[in-house]
């Protein structure tokens, strides 16, 4: 059973249609890479699935529960609040610019939601946060404040923060784009590690080499539609559409 199915998603901002019927599916343990030029709607798609935006039309189901479906009048019908909130707990999102809480220590950034959303005790939350920090190689930074960390360290904290909620699927919106080139490697390594543990993930990325060897499916989006999708060998090795070829060729050059 797929963990995520999104079918025929439409989304407009002030009359301009940004998503024009997007359908994606992610199996448990799968890693989907979403690539495409700037403005093609990749972030918007992630934001619709993570409930930061509402869709105009389309169906989304996560872990077998329906978030939204298309009603008879062709408009989106969202499930009631309780269901939406429950579904929200299945998903995690890692932002391009981290969005850590600057007034909390690293540890508290990670424990705050498990404690106050999931109702864990402080001890439970801190114990699992320390495990995650160890995994992120940040054990010595538990008491530091985010402003004292490098971008790569901040992004690893934000991944730990998302993982602390035990999501069934984790979304990444260009997790390395705000980092200096020499810091992207440490984040990609973490995501590779999660893939090896069979974490279900959807990663929007401009790192083609990374998409190629970590993802088991690649989606190429342009102008709000999916132009091409398939296993990485096919999308990168045996590219069908001219649009995709043109996009990928820009990466081969440099």
């Amino acid at each position: 059973m797929p963990i995520l199915t999104a079918h025929d998603i439409h989304k407009s901002f002030g009359g301009e249609e940004v998503l024009k019927g997007i359908s994606v599916e992610v199996e448990k343990g799968g890693v989907l890479a979403v690539i495409g030029p700037s403005g093609s709607g990749k972030s918007t798609l992630l934001r619709c699935i993570t409930q930061l935006e509402t869709v105009d039309r389309g169906d989304i189901a996560i872990c077998g529960e329906t978030l939204v479906r298309t009603g008879k009048d062709g408009k989106a019908v969202y499930s009631d609040r309780a269901v939406c909130n429950r579904i929200a707990l299945h998903v995690g999102l890692v932002f391009q610019n981290f969005n850590l809480f600057p007034h909390f220590s690293v540890l508290r950034n990670i424990t705050e939601a498990p404690e106050h959303v999931l109702g864990r005790t402080k001890e439970q939350a801190e114990a699992s946060a320390m495990k995650l920090l160890k995994k992120m190689d940040l054990s010595d930074k538990a008491d530091a404040y985010p402003c004292r960390l490098s971008g790569g360290q901040q992004q690893r904290v934000s991944i730990a923060r998302a993982l602390a909620m035990n999501p069934d699927v984790l979304f990444f919106d260009e997790p390395t784009s705000a980092l200096d080139p020499e810091l992207t490697g440490e984040i990609l390594k973490v995501i590779r590690g999660l893939a090896a543990e069979r974490m279900t993930m959807v990663v929007v990325t401009h790192e083609m080499a990374f998409a190629r060897d970590v993802a088991d499916r690649v989606v190429f989006m342009a102008d709000g539609v999916i132009v091409e999708q398939g296993p990485p060998e096919q999308v990168f090795g045996n590219t069908q559409s001219e649009r995709t070829k043109a996009f990928l060729s820009r990466f081969h050059e440099n």
């Binding site: 999102l93 969005n99 809480f101 939601a113 106050h116 999931l118």
Partner: peptide, 27 residues
């Protein structure tokens, strides 16, 4: 307060009330 703060809180499952009193107001 940057919009990303509220968005991060929302995705983590905080209610609007929790977001305001725990994340936004202290900042």
């Amino acid at each position: 307060i940057p919009r990303g703060q509220r968005e991060a809180a929302k995705v983590l499952g905080f209610t609007r009330r929790q977001t305001f009193f725990r994340i936004v107001l202290p900042q």
